[in-house]
Design a protein around this nucleic acid. Structure first.
Lengths: 389, 389
DNA sequence: TAAACTTAATAAAATATTTTAAAAACAAGA
DNA sequence: TCTTGTTTTTAAAATATTTTATTAAGTTTA
């Protein structure tokens, strides 16, 4: 990739699908002749093609360009503490292989890394994807991920302390990029979701725990050592419950869906009346059961989620005071029940936020939903295009 | 100012005092010939001069350049809720006039703006400063300041709703820049203090209240509508004390030095033994009395400040979790007693922070101290050089 | 103490990039 | 329908910027 312009053209076409030469020129802030040159180079390589004319806006019709979707593929991997999803996507996020979900608990799991490698290997072999067309593998994972070093300090250990990224790269014989799951969800929202073209957005990853991906000045914010957004462990609660992190009073102890599901199970056992009693027996994770029951209007499930929403809202109030974002996006697994969470979150914000700050902050539920993690993983590969060795 | 390079040369020489052409070239990321040209232009104008050779680092000695300190002056104004300081500074921050401090309470004060105007007018007249050499007036002030609009929504009202900046500009017949006081303190730390050359720094403005200026990605962070860093009103306390902002449980209710002084006065009245009983009678603000007593080793004052420090530390723990900064600077009026605050802050951080985050976060007391506000105000003018109309 | 290696400053050449000009394609109003 | 004003595209010219080469000045090593 000679010119930086070519790279930018690819990235803009990836996020915006179809753009004219002059539109690209404005975005990249380079002259039309230079962008035209880059487009011609990319067309020669077969990565870009023109896709007809856009309607005139008062003058000559602009010729539109877009990526050739099937020119290159990306392996997107979205991991959480319990499940891992794998899928090959093209440049339009269209699935090339069927989504594969495997149960892969990461906690204290020495074999996790090798299971992951085997799963990706098998996925690629089972589907007859042309491996030479694969640009790279993007993996979103929980834990303290150091992206420069390519290390995950929390999960997915490697033999003899090699960096996870290097190990995966060696095993898979493909370029591999890893990042924190919440960061990738935020990235997905920034490029393709509700945070698109926004500057300051907080994306809440409502999953087994509570994650945060921060968009600051239009880019993903990582902080000094890459661990910014440790939202779930801010000391805020007086409940004294011991958190996984070893401290007490973490926000996570009040908003974790995993803990909520435990509580629900216990109360159902003690005779609470709810749809959940049957759903819990179905082949479905307890958390998903609660989310589904709430969406079906089950009073008890709604009550449980509302409580989480209110506590979350108090945490978000802190976030708004410090960051003054224009938008808060509720995303991740819990976005399925986003509508139900929205009201109590808003309620808490009204109570805990200075009106001048709140009035300019929008609260929304992700439209990408649970797909955000996969899209973010794919996007990670695209954003780091040709920067690996 | 024709070229953007000239502006950057001025700004780098302003913050770094003396630099060689090649050092400037590296910083500005422009070739040596271009920077040389800009330097020559600026020397023709009499704003820049060469100041001898630097020691060799293995080859030819570099010729150093710096600003001509007395070429232009800046009026720096640092306001807080009770006092306003005014001083004319040169390009080396050397005082051209004597520091003037006037009591100017801003709360519910309709005349505040005109008093400010008159004070600046008088200050400039009394000292015989050549007004044509004044580049502009930089003012740091508390309240919700919207810098684009040049408006302060909290204090300093203007007749018939004109923007504060426009009004001041008209009245003073000089370019005026306004900004939030805590932001300017952070800016001062970034350019001349402990945050220099750092990327992610949180500067705590310990004053009558508790302010926060945020350095993110090496620049001052303002958020969506410019009010980022409303640290003091995060809902964190269970004390239920009604805050000025109208909410209960704000951090400010636990860390405000003004409230602390009130408490001290009350307890002294009830017979508490302390140096404070005599200091309170001196011609000194009660808050300064507490700070001084603490520095003198007064047990009661230290106890009061330690309590504030611990509460503040809990708030800072939240900040660290969200922002993952490399450095926290305790600055502002309270920095005088910074050493006393440091221990309880550190104590709270050890208790409330995830070790992995804390181990990469330095906590320090500002060396600029109370001067930061004036330096920040002057710097505000320099950073917006030639951008006004 | 001279040769070899550094770094800095300047001038000349080469390259990169933008600006301008012109042509093509289209819309809207007279 | 023709004219005028837009916008896009391409080519040519002008400008901006960097690269290279050269000279100058200094340090280090043999």
């Amino acid at each position: 990739m000679r010119s930086g312009i070519e790279k930018q053209v690819i990235q803009y076409l990836y996020t915006d699908r179809e753009l004219s030469c002059s539109a690209l020129s404005e975005r990249i802030e380079k002259s039309v002749p230079m962008v035209m040159h880059a487009l011609n180079q990319l067309m020669k390589r077969g990565w870009v093609c023109s896709t007809g004319y856009a309607p005139s806006t008062g003058g000559r019709k602009p010729l539109l360009y877009s990526l050739v979707p099937e020119a290159q593929y990306i392996v997107a991997v979205a991991m959480d503490q319990l499940f891992t999803r794998i899928q090959v996507l093209d440049w339009l996020h269209r699935p090339i292989t069927q989504l594969e979900t495997l149960a892969l608990p990461l906690h204290d799991n020495e074999q996790a890394t090798d299971i992951l490698v085997q799963a990706i290997h098998k996925h690629l072999h089972a589907s007859s994807v042309n491996v030479s067309k694969i640009l790279g593998v993007g993996i979103g994972m929980p834990g303290f991920v150091h992206i420069q070093k390519g290390v995950n300090y929390t999960f997915l250990p490697t033999p003899n302390g090699e960096s996870l990224r290097a190990y995966l790269q060696k095993q898979l014989q493909l370029p591999v990029l890893i990042d924190n799951d919440s960061s990738l969800i935020a990235l997905a929202e920034l490029r393709f979701g509700m945070a698109k073209n926004r500057k300051h957005v907080m994306v809440i990853n409502i999953g087994w725990g509570t994650g945060l991906g921060m968009i600051v000045n239009g880019t993903l914010f990582r902080g000094h050592t890459g661990y910014a957004g440790e939202f779930s462990h801010i000391p805020i609660s007086e409940n004294k419950i011991l958190c996984e992190c070893g401290k007490r009073g973490c926000l996570e102890t009040e908003t974790s869906l995993l803990l909520l599901a435990e509580k629900a199970k216990e109360e159902i056992r003690q005779g609470k009346v709810s749809q959940l009693s049957t759903l819990f027996k179905a082949n479905m994770h307890a958390v998903d059961a609660v989310l589904e029951a709430a969406n079906n209007g089950d009073e008890y499930a709604i009550e449980l989620l509302s409580d989480v929403g209110y506590k979350l809202g108090k945490g978000i109030a802190i976030l708004i005071h410090i960051m003054n974002p224009e938008l808060i996006v509720l995303s991740g697994r819990g976005a399925k029940a986003g509508k139900i969470l929205l009201a109590p979150v808003q309620h808490a914000l009204n109570k805990y936020c200075i009106p001048r700050l709140l009035e300019n902050t929008e609260i929304a539920v992700s439209k990408l939903g649970f797909e955000a993690s996969l899209i973010g993983a794919a996007n990670l590969v695209m954003e780091n295009l040709f920067e690996w060795n």
